[in-house]
């Protein structure tokens, strides 16, 4: 297990405090003091799970803009997949051809893998079942409701072509 580092605690503390202020939306001294106490306790206990490597990665404006750009890409993919799923459902759920494909991915870091597989799961029609590593190459097992290509590379291009480019810009 990782050791607790000061920079990781500070980054987690700032994030918790921002969320606290957004949720309570009150700036009296008592509320802010309670927020500082709760955020500090959370940060001390959970920073070693939450922040690995460079803790202040996201205080870099370039990364924030690439994350915003990625969310635009992701939203357009999301709308396309939702429209397809609505067509299948309102057509009577007949056109399903489910299968689990094994897709190679170029992502290396844990955060990149997590963001990519979360995005894939959040798109209707695909769910990431598992991540496995073989000889330094990471693979995703993806349940796909309408299998259009059985080989790993072609399926990967169809499922995560534009998503993966965006995630790589954010995390590596």
């Amino acid at each position: 297990m990782q050791k607790t580092r000061f920079s990781a605690v500070l980054a987690t503390f700032i994030l918790c405090m921002v969320v606290w202020v957004l949720i309570t939306w009150s700036f009296t001294v008592q509320e802010l003091a309670a927020g500082v106490l709760v955020s500090l306790a959370t940060a001390v206990f959970s920073s070693r799970f939450f922040a690995h490597g460079d803790s202040f990665r996201f205080f870099n404006p370039v990364k924030i803009f690439s994350l915003l750009g990625y969310s635009v890409t992701f939203f357009s993919e999301l709308v396309k997949a939702n429209v397809n799923m609505a067509k299948v459902v309102y057509g009577g759920c007949k056109a399903v051809k489910p299968g689990i494909v094994k897709v190679p991915t170029a992502m290396q870091s844990d955060y990149g893998l997590a963001l990519l597989s979360d995005s894939i799961t959040l798109t209707p029609g695909t769910i990431t079942m598992d991540v496995a590593e073989e000889n330094g190459q990471n693979y995703l097992y993806i349940h796909w409701i309408d299998v259009a290509a059985e080989s790993g590379e072609a399926a990967g291009e169809a499922i995560k072509g534009s998503l993966e480019k965006g995630t790589r810009r954010v995390f590596e």
Binding site: N82, V89, T123, G125
Partner: peptide
């Protein structure tokens, strides 16, 4: 509504979960 009908009508658990993803997204 598409997600809810999908949960009721899809053939197996994994396909039901696929349809239900419409609800928390769009």
């Amino acid at each position: 509504l598409a997600g809810t009908i999908g949960i009721l009508k899809m053939p197996d658990v994994l396909c039901r979960m696929q349809a239900s993803t419409c609800i928390p997204t769009l």
